[in-house]
Every structure is written in C-alpha cells, then in structure tokens.
Design a protein around this nucleic acid. Structure first.
Ligand code: SF4
Ligand code: SF4
Lengths: 149, 149
DNA sequence: CATAAATGATACCTTTGGGTATTATTTAGA
DNA sequence: TCTAAATAATACCCAAAGGTATCATTTATG
C-alpha cells in the first residue's frame, strides 16, 4: 500500500523513537539510524513537534522526545499529522456528489475496506510497535544523499 | 481512500462506458457526462486504448468501445493501467530491506489489509458495476474548466 | 475529392510534494 | 562570556503528476 513518502518517514521516525521512549534524540542521531534526507528530516521533526507528537528541546544537547505515553499514540495519529487524509468516508470513484438512490457495487465493499484499515490503524499503537520490534530501521533505497550540516 | 486522480478518472470512464458496453463513445460524449478535463480525457482515452481495455476507431464518427466482455475486466485491471501500482507486497513502513527475524506488529496486519483490498478489486468486475448502477456520473468538484476543441 | 469530425502524437505549462540552502535562535559548558 | 551544538524559520530548487496547446492523421459523407 502507499502512503506518501513523508508519511512513511513520520511512521519510521516515531516507531524508531518509541524503542526508547524517554530518550531525547537529536536529529543527527535519528539521521544516523534512518537515513532520511537530513534537512527534510529536520523539517519533519519540527512539524511533528508543532503537531504535539514530539517535544523539542532547543540548545546544545537538545533534541526531540515522544510527548505522550506510547499507548496513547496510534499509527493513525501519526499519519494524520502529515497531511495524508486518506481513509475518509469517500466514494470509491472519487465522486463528491453521488446521489446513490441505489448504491453501486463498490459502495459497501469499499466502506468495509476502509473500516478494516481504520480499525488496524487506530488500534495499533506505538506501544505495540515497540513490543514487537525489532524490525529494520535502515532503509537502503540505494539512494545517496549528503548530510552537510 | 485515495487513488491518483488519473486512476479515479479511468475508473469513472470505464464504469460509464460499461453502462452500454457495445456502444462507440466519442470523447465528446464522455466529456459531456463525466466532465473530466477534456484534453486530459483525450490523452487518457488513448492510453486506455493502447493498454487494450478500449478499442479506438478513428475518423469521422469514430470513438471508443470497451474491448472485452465486462465480466473479464476487473477494477484492478483498470487501476493497473494508470500506473497506480499500489497494493503490492510492500512493507507498511516503506522499507525495502527489512530483515524481520521477528516481524513487527504491522507486518501481518497489513498483509491482511492488502489481501482484503485485492480481493475486492479483483473480484469486482465491470459487469457487476453495470448491474448495480445507476450512480452519479457527474462530478461537481465545483471546478470550472474549458473544453475548446 | 473536399470537408468536417473524430482520434493520435508531441511538446509545453502549472501545481504540488519532496528536498536543499541560508540565516537566526537557543543553551550547555569550557 | 564565548563557543559549539543543537533546533527554528524561511525561502528557494527540482521532479513528477496533472492539465493545456498545437499539429498531424484518419475516415464518413456531401
Ligand atoms: S454508490 Fe458508488 S459511486 Fe455512489 S458514492 Fe457510493 S461508491 Fe461512489
Ligand atoms: S516486519 Fe514490519 S518493518 Fe519489517 S517488512 Fe514487515 S511491516 Fe515492514
């Protein structure tokens, strides 16, 4: 399935930080582990901070820390912070104004799919992710990018 | 849920044409019913023709017709022609190289979601869509665009 | 056979998401 | 108190998707 790249980044970041939930991570340290393009990572981290999922500490030896209890952060919570407003109650065909005096074949089927997805995303929390680790946190993506900061 | 706009267009086009599966539709006629930006619609129609889902007839009084029996065209068939290669067997987090000596919490859950989606998309054919019509084929999107061709 | 009405091909423009560069601010600690 | 190491803010750049414009080709029909 496909979320936006940004959403995938956010999911990785939060999952990674959940491995040590009290710890204050610097952007450098996250970069070292996740290899997300550094400056973009920086931007994303401040976004996540503003959204309330992370707390940021400025100054030397500053960084980011997860703001709430892991059990209170669902994967959907994370996904919603990065603009991926998928899984809303939309028409399968992308219509905004279907009258459906009689529903088409996809209406209920697709509603069930959405329900299924939402169920998984809202009930799975970072706590569960932490417990079931480890998974690989280094993405190859065989892409090479520079850090220089 | 979100497919690309182009995929949504393709789904609408094919579903609409399925309502009268033998008929030769001109781009003009499809435009009149679906209000997809005209020149983009034209482009898409030739794409669908090249992909084999439609047969095109050139010249005056030409147009497009669905190429196969409706029961042989699944929604997934349509989706796959427009580059939306979603629902592949990918990692939830977007990793390409997870070792998973021990699978993370999302691995099987997400595989089940994908399976669910694929099931719906491969088993639902245009025939079924035709039978369960009508649904609205006019999208408002309150967007105004010109035709001029 | 000329014309009109259709599709085909191709190049270009625009918007958006992803990514980079630069400068400013905060703060621990020598 | 100066410096280094961190985050914050802002503006810019690039590539891909969506959309437009132009011209060429096909063919029914007068
Ligand atoms: S009936 Fe079909 S076309 Fe209408 S809103 Fe539901 S899914 Fe969309
Ligand atoms: S175990 Fe988790 S991280 Fe690894 S491939 Fe499966 S879903 Fe992705």
């Amino acid at each position: 399935m496909n979320f936006s790249r940004t959403t995938e980044y956010a999911l990785r970041i939060m999952s990674f930080m959940a491995m040590n939930e009290q710890k204050l991570y610097s952007a450098n340290e996250i970069y070292a582990n996740l290899k997300i393009p550094f400056r973009y990572l920086r931007k994303l981290l401040t976004t996540l901070s503003k959204s309330g999922l992370l707390i940021s500490v400025q100054g030397k030896s500053g960084g980011y820390r997860i703001s709430k209890d892991l059990s209170e952060i669902s994967l959907l919570d994370i996904i919603q912070q990065t603009g991926d407003n998928k899984f809303k109650n939309e028409c399968f065909f992308g219509f905004h104004d279907c009258a459906f005096v009689k529903k088409c074949a996809m209406h209920d089927k697709w509603a069930a799919v959405r329900e299924n997805i939402n169920q998984v995303l809202t009930t799975t929390t970072l706590e569960e992710i932490k417990e079931t680790g480890p998974h690989s946190f280094i993405s190859n993506n065989n892409s090479v990018f520079t850090k220089n900061d």
